[in-house]
Design a protein around this nucleic acid. Sequence first.
DNA 1: TGCTTGAGCTCGCGA
DNA 2: TCGCGAGGTCAAGCA
Lengths: 259, 259
Amino acid sequence: MEKVLERPDFEEAEETLREYLRREYTVQINGLCSVNYQGRAKSKLDRGERLVIKKQDSALLVHGPENYQPKNWQPEVDSWKVENGEKLLLTAERNSPEEKVEILFERIDLMTVSQLVDKSELKISGHEVDIHESIEDRPEIVEENLRFIERERETPAGFIDVFARDEDDNYVVIEVKRNPDYNTVLQLQRYVEEIDEEFKGNIRGILVAPKMTDKILSYLKERDLEFVEVDMEDVITSYDAIDNSQKGLSDFSTEYETN
Amino acid sequence: MEKVLERPDFEEAEETLREYLRREYTVQINGLCSVNYQGRAKSKLDRGERLVIKKQDSALLVHGPENYQPKNWQPEVDSWKVENGEKLLLTAERNSPEEKVEILFERIDLMTVSQLVDKSELKISGHEVDIHESIEDRPEIVEENLRFIERERETPAGFIDVFARDEDDNYVVIEVKRNPDYNTVLQLQRYVEEIDEEFKGNIRGILVAPKMTDKILSYLKERDLEFVEVDMEDVITSYDAIDNSQKGLSDFSTEYETN
DNA sequence: TGCTTGAGCTCGCGA
DNA sequence: TCGCGAGGTCAAGCA
């Protein structure tokens, strides 16, 4: 840690901010503050104890004691301002869109400065594209004897995810969605209509998704469309587990229930 | 701050976690760690310096040095586990959906515990509902001599935001969207068709939004639908600005450009 | 509890 | 730079 200041006065806090409120540094501030935002919308947050974080790309987060999401934020700040009077006012502005966050500190409990070094990229599997690749590798996930014709086939209504033929040579339009909704159904319907225009015959439409609700299923049935559930277990690529030098530690562990 | 531990060893860190890894406490950890996630998807994040936050509602955030969003997280953790070996392994699980985040610390630079008190609610204006209320109060924002008939009118295609008549007694279907897209256009079209079924005559469809793109505008025109831009300034309610005991401080201030 | 929808969405990709 | 779509979306509101 570059700096750890407990209960700094505003002079010290101001000075520290002036020095480290640029890129390269991560600044964390625990303190009592109120926050105003104006830009795409407008918000006001009265005094409360919060954790303010300025990241190294000038992202600003104001986290309350609860929730995944911050109460206020700014994805990328263009310019900072520090004003020290009876209270300490930190202003973060950005230009596009034009917006501003003002944080007025009445008390600072802790201010830390650090330079986080993190070159690792998050490797993640289970996105929509991974479903695509899975069914491309193994079309039988969707249906036995399914043959691929084309991927990303263009129609006037947009791009069809997968275009195929089944074992009876029917054309099959496949739409892949991780989180399907009503619009997905309408879109699939439009694709089927387009293909029907082009080829006539018995055109099948299949929605491939890892989960489904009864309501969407009924929308599909109303339109003579089909649903095939894909198991995400089949889709997710396996990574090496965390270094397993930790194995056998379970004896030392204790579980805590949170309420 | 309840505790501020610089460079604690794993014994001390483990002990602190066991004591404070329950609700009511906010725990912040700066350290070198790697993170595995498995649940709705699967991810692996190699070693790097990060800020780990456990909030008072048991939300877990793993923030890297950049970005608004955390690299890994868990919205609400049901059970925690701490294992101390060569490294310190923190496991957070939740039941629905079933998923797990494992954080393996190789070094802890700072660990702090606090209890944030924040009873203030965020007051925010500029949501879609605020646009609704504005045009309900002052229909002339959309068009002169527009008369309001009904809000949330049900049709087989869904609920119409605002149903009205213009000065020539034409029926007007209004769809309000903060962030309009192609689906918005299709939806409006379906509403107009439904109303046309019911009433016949000249049915107008208006999309009311604070912003618009050329593409969506052309979709609208293709379907003989209209667009009215609403100024968010007219929509946003004014709150009291931050306490202005700070006025006149600008002389002391300095601006910093972030690269 | 499950489903639907908006979000100051954010973020990444592609034109 | 803008537009589009996905997200481990989250979170609120309502049935």
